[in-house]
Amino acid sequence: MFKLFKSKKVAKNLAIGLASATTASGLGLALALNVDLFASDHGCYPAKYPWFHDGLFNTYDHASIRRGYEVYKQVCSACHSMRYTYFRHLVGVSHTEDEAKAEAAEAMVTDGPNEEGNMYQRPGKLSDPLPSPYPNDEAAKAANGGALPPDLSLIAFARNNGTNYIFSLLTGYHDPPAGVEVKEGLHYNPYFNGGWIAMAKALYDEVIEYTDGTPATESQLAKDVTEYLRWSSEKSHDEKKKLLLKTFLIFPPILALFYVYKRRVFTVMKSRKLMFNPTKSSGSGKH
């Protein structure tokens, strides 16, 4: 049957050449076009930072989550809500139950209606979400010059390259390069898409004081609050990493045993020999 293509050698070579040229040039062009663009167009690409939790089996740094909560509470929460994080989530993660209850009680929550049909204020409970700074998005926009401060509960997942991006953004504020016109009410930050962000630089050295005595440098503050936001985006992370470790411990021995068993089942079939003895009556087929 291969004779067919030998006799059509020219056509075959032509076809091979054409097909591979198209594919190769297509792929080559595609790769050549996949070059980096100017940072000023789409924002700087954040550097990769050595987060402890990035390791295959590593948990969050819970002391850092606790400090990050302090940063969020004293700095970020003035503008940003965290609707999907509840005080009860802090228990056993960064705070004891009593501490979390005390944190919750600091917030005043509107509840009701009571028996007279009126809404009333009560201190927060563990089952309440972290308090929002504004009653609704419109109020938030009005108070921030038209820009809506995003909800932070899922922010580490809601931005590409979440943790590195947040850390870079928080520490990336500086004066615009020479020749770039300053925009009213906006702040220059090369990591933000477009370069101009409505949020002012919020973290400075010693802007708050940590209760555990860690020196509150700008990068320490940014690192801790990023760790806290990362935790908020995925509260099941530590459990997940533990399951991953168990997967790595349980599966290889099972697979090794199963592999041997599979080979054993196939030994007879793999080691048999088939003989084909053409006779006059059966072996006249053309091949």
């Binding site: 402890f52 390791g55 089996f57 590593n58 948990t59 969050y60 740094d61 819970h62 002391a63 056993g92 993660v93 960064s94 530590d238 990493k241 533990k242 470790l245 168990k246 411990l249």
Partner: peptide, 14 residues
């Protein structure tokens, strides 16, 4: 596996 996990993450967990 719990003991391995806790030793990898010593000082980090709650």
């Amino acid at each position: 596996s719990d003991s391995i996990f806790n030793s990898i993450n010593k000082g980090k967990q709650w």
